[in-house]
Design a protein around this nucleic acid. Structure first.
Length: 433
RNA sequence: UGGGGCGUAGCUUAGCUGGCAAAGCGCCGGACUGUUAAUCCGAAGACCGGUGGUUCGAAUCCACCCGCCCCAGCCA
């Protein structure tokens, strides 16, 4: 008989042995002389069976003091038992209370309102479903790093504090010494383009901030975005990279986060189908299709959420909608030589109504046309001097995209709202905890 | 910001055509040697979001305010 301290997830390998587990109490049930304590340690949950006649008087007394979320150290024999969640349980021989927990622990094993849960997010994180989401997110993040590492991309960390540059949407401002206002980054892309000219293939993985007063399940004010930028890629190569990337992430989640997806009751049959290539629909066709389905969209409008849902309904894969009208998109996108009303760009729309998980484009690489676009948009030319330099000194065709991490996690996990995909979501009315 | 909905016990909700504030869960006390969100018995727990108004009387009707949820726009 050996004696070891192990994590709950490893217990299947020590059946028949005595082990010590440390964790937190989640449920207590007592039948008088037999008691059940369910504990969690972050790796899994374990039912501990305490028989009064089989433990010391001190351990039995300690059992009487246990409360939900008390931290404990339990020692006993690990045995297989079909009645236990997870198939193994512990026959306790020794029980020690490490940190008690008062009786007012707010989260109960029942339905709660979302406002209450978000107020107690620091404790809600301990719940099984939230642990599963955090682990699935972690696996997805690692898959992202591995995908790019395998393809010799270099990760570049771009600044979070920036001067006003990027897109036009809402900015968070803060004072910055003698330099006036600094703004929290809305994108690392422009810096990514500079890095692509140095390194060829790069990606960024960082927080992004949008001060828009968005109150929908698809928006956070702070979210994480992955932005690859590839020298010599055109818009078509850009889409190929995207579909390979998304397929890789989904495959990886299915392979290595299957327990988590099961815990989340995710029907993975739709995810199993996600394999490159994805359907491609150009914007003009999309508008015609939508009009035939009754949408009031006009050529020139961006797709609304309803339009996206309508369009995606015909497919069980993510789809690309490409080459939008210039007016609907950002200044840095390259004009389409075959139809100058449009730009070489694409959105990748998730299936099952998850909306835009990627926005990408080939970048304008002509100095004069880019300068003209900056002026057309009324942007301060001075602020874009360094960005224009990238077209002045050895310009090069290049393309990239931004993948919204939380939207991707929500889709893969089958969650209706982004707020559960990140440990501490930041929304308009949510700055704490 | 616009449209819709909602604020009642620690939590989730019922009560809303005005007339003594309810239930389930949780917590506390008790019973039980295999429970799975255990079960059974008992107890405690409320400034009905706030302010004003109508009325003999307001959780209920009216006005204003505050907060939240859903949808839309913006986008990842």
């Amino acid at each position: 008989m050996t004696f070891s301290t192990v994590s709950i997830s490893g217990l299947r390998g020590v059946v028949g042995q005595t082990a010590t587990v440390r964790g937190w109490v989640t449920h207590i049930r007592s039948s008088g002389k037999v008691a059940f304590v369910v504990a969690r340690d972050g790796s899994g949950i374990l039912q501990c069976v305490i028989v009064k006649s089989a433990v010391t008087a001190k351990s039995w007394e300690t059992f009487g003091q246990l409360t939900v979320e008390a931290s404990v150290s339990v020692t006993g024999e690990i045995r297989a038992d079909a009645r236990a969640p997870g198939g193994v349980e512990m026959g306790v021989s020794d029980l020690n209370l490490i940190g008690d927990s008062p009786l007012d622990y707010p989260i109960q094993p029942k339905e709660h309102g979302i406002d209450f849960l978000l107020d107690h997010r620091h404790l809600w994180l301990r719940s099984r479903k939230q642990v599963a989401i955090a682990r699935a997110r972690h696996e997805i993040e690692q898959a992202i790093h591995d995908f790019f590492y395998e393809r010799q991309f270099v990760r570049v960390d771009t600044p979070i504090l920036t001067a006003a540059i990027g897109e036009r949407s809402g900015l968070f401002a803060t004072e910055y010494f003698e330099e006036g206002n600094a703004y929290l980054a809305q994108t690392g892309q422009l810096y990514g383009e500079a890095a692509a000219a140095a390194l060829g293939k790069i990606y960024t993985f960082g927080p992004t901030f949008r001060a828009e007063k968005s109150k929908t399940r698809r928006h956070l004010t702070e979210f994480w975005m992955i932005e690859p930028e590839v020298a010599w890629n055109d818009s078509e190569a850009n889409m190929v990279l995207q579909e390979d990337f998304v397929s890789y992430i989904v495959r990886r989640a299915l392979d290595r986060a299957s327990d988590e997806l099961k815990e989340l009751e995710r029907d993975t049959s739709a995810l199993e189908r996600v394999k490159a290539p994805f359907p491609r629909i150009n914007y003009t066709e999309a508008v015609a299709t939508l009009q035939s389905k009754g949408s009031t969209i006009q050529w020139g409008d961006d797709l609304g959420a309803e339009d996206e849902t309508l369009l995606v309904a015909d497919y069980d894969l993510p789809i690309f909608v490409f080459n939008y009208p210039k007016e609907a998109k950002a200044f840095y996108m390259k004009e389409n030589p075959d139809d100058p009303r449009t730009v070489l760009c694409n959105d990748c729309l998730g299936p099952e109504g998850y909306g835009e998980i990627i926005g990408g484009s080939q970048r304008e690489d002509n100095y004069d046309r880019l300068l003209a676009r900056i002026k057309e948009e009324g942007l301060p030319v001075d602020a874009y001097g360094w960005y224009l330099d990238l077209r002045k000194y050895g310009t090069f065709p290049h393309a990239g995209f931004g993948l919204g991490l939380e939207r991707t996690v929500a889709w893969i996990c089958g969650l209706p709202h982004l707020r559960e995909t990140i440990a501490f979501p930041r929304m308009m009315n949510r700055l704490r905890p």
